[in-house]
């Protein structure tokens, strides 16, 4: 009996301590799963102009999205912008992440803060910076015209290029931080081993660094892709009202058109794309690392 009693006490305490996870789990379940379920239910309702939302169980909102060229174009444009931005972030982010991961500089913390700070400043503020630079009398046009390189100001604001530049700058820190943490986990001596076996830097990168950093590359790519698909402030401020992407489209359906069922359906299409991509990438990484 004396051998059983202490174990029971310990087991009881462990079970009790395990319950500490319950409040947070319930909170997320209530505030995330509950709302998503209602949103999905809304997306099956009907929208009747004048009558607002009518209870129904139809998939016409989804059919409307995938059969109307306008909405499909918005989706395609959003995916195109997201893919370009993600690739640009990967190409631009890798060198910076590598330098941050390997630097011995005593200013390393300041460099990391310089990467993290813009992340916390908000997308609207950063878009304001680009608006200052890209306007017809902005910094870029003023300097190009001052140098005599162009006669007419370049039209950059309210173009896809402005949106691309804006989103790349917004998402680059996420890519850099994800890659940096993975590269820091790769021992430096595997790189030195490659060099001492005669590999030049490009070969070392392709044969050693890239494969070892692959999980981080995928994680960073997924994260920046999700963020680009989901961008709101940047396309609104730098793309203008004519440059529609999925984020502003969803907001417009809720706030301006009052078409909640259709807005809910577009939200779900956006989220499904996100989940499918995340799971696919996760699956690929797990199979590769096995």
């Amino acid at each position: 009996m004396s051998t059983i009693a202490p174990e029971a006490v310990a087991g009881g305490r462990t079970r009790l301590a395990g319950l500490l996870v319950v409040p947070a789990t319930l909170f997320v379940a209530l505030m995330l799963i509950g709302p998503l379920a209602i949103l999905f239910r809304y997306s099956l309702n009907k929208f009747v102009p004048g009558q607002f939302m009518v209870d129904a169980l139809v998939i016409e909102n989804y059919i409307k999205f995938f059969t109307d060229g306008y909405y499909l174009n918005v989706l395609i444009r959003t995916v195109r912008v997201s893919v370009i931005c993600t690739l640009a972030c990967l190409v631009m982010g890798f060198p910076l992440a590598y330098v941050l991961a390997r630097t011995q500089s005593r200013f390393k913390n300041l460099l990391v803060i310089a990467v993290v700070l813009p992340l916390f400043v908000g997308n609207a503020v950063r878009a304001a910076g680009w608006m200052t630079a890209f306007g017809s009398r902005g910094a870029l046009n003023a300097s190009l015209m001052g140098l005599g390189l162009i006669d007419q100001p370049l039209e950059i604001m309210y173009t896809e290029n402005a949106v691309l530049i804006g989103i790349i700058a917004v998402n680059l820190p996420f890519m850099v931080l994800t890659l940096q943490s993975v590269i820091e986990g790769i021992p430096r001596n595997v790189e030195e081993a490659a060099f001492s076996l005669g590999a030049n830097p490009p070969v070392m990168f392709r044969r050693v660094l890239w494969p070892l950093a692959l999980p981080g590359i995928l994680a960073g790519t997924i994260l920046t892709f999700i963020l680009a698909m989901n961008a709101y402030a940047t396309p609104v401020l730098l793309g203008g009202p004519k440059f529609q992407t999925m984020g502003p489209l969803v907001y417009g359906q809720f706030a301006q058109q009052n078409n909640w069922p259709f807005g809910a359906a577009i939200s779900f299409i956006l989220m499904t794309a996100t989940i499918v991509l995340t799971m696919t990438a996760n699956f690929i990484v797990r199979r590769r690392s096995r």
Partner: peptide, 14 residues
């Protein structure tokens, strides 16, 4: 990892 827009619409209808 949830898109912020989706979180916003879902919380709104909730």
């Amino acid at each position: 990892v949830m898109p912020g827009i989706v979180l916003g619409t879902a919380t709104y209808v909730f």
